[in-house]
Amino acid sequence: MKNNKSNLSRRDFFKNGAIIVGGIAVASAITTFDSVLFALEPPKGKGKWYGIGIDINKCIGCGKCANACKLENNVPKEPFYFRSWVEQYTIKNDGTIKVESPNGGIDGFQQSIPDEEIFKSFFVPKMCNHCAKSPCTQVCPVGATFETPEGIVLVDPNYCIGCRYCVQACPYGCRYVHPDTGTVDKCTLCIHRLKKGLQPACFEICPTEARIFGDLNDLESKINYFLKNHTCMVIKPHLNTGSKLFYNALSSEVR
């Protein structure tokens, strides 16, 4: 009963247009206005449903998140395997764009363009978008990657056949094949930490609290506060992946 009520108020809330979040391009039908946020029907059931917020204005590009992710999750050290990494976008006065991510940002960023040529520059931390309509789980031939009821996209390393179709299907480049196991590996939102009541490593370690995650079903959660108070956007909204990684101050150059 209580849940129903909150759902209702939530829907009204959306209809009032208090939040306009990413995926505007896909909100063609008014009946699916909810889907601007979720890019699909809101999940049924009362459980948690995780979403992520990243504030680009707060990111200082220290690369600690990428490093922490590798340490926490035993990701190979080589610069070809990342669950989480940071990119620096630099838009020059002549309109050209330079993107760089040396070793995923772990070793820090050296400014490669002199100040006077720079129009603007910013850091964008990247990680799995934990899409609600994820193209990667759609293509898995055996059901070895899937979305949990809590909205986390996981890989089943004991069932994955290593066909790499999901790697091709992810528009965000968030998957890789682990060289030791031959199976696909990706961000788990540190589900092993969530179980213990801890934050995922990259959220725990972010010195500026640029990263926020929380339960989208809980109106009081940090993530919903973040969404309410910022103009948020997802990457590649036209692909309608139902991305649950929302960026504040996302520039259109970011892809």
Partner: peptide, 20 residues
């Protein structure tokens, strides 16, 4: 769903490194 439900708990039993 179309996956091994046990995979969720298997993903949850990994070693932690950061204490908080």
């Amino acid at each position: 769903g179309h996956y091994r439900a046990d995979a969720i708990s298997e993903n949850q039993v990994r070693e932690l490194h950061y204490a908080g």
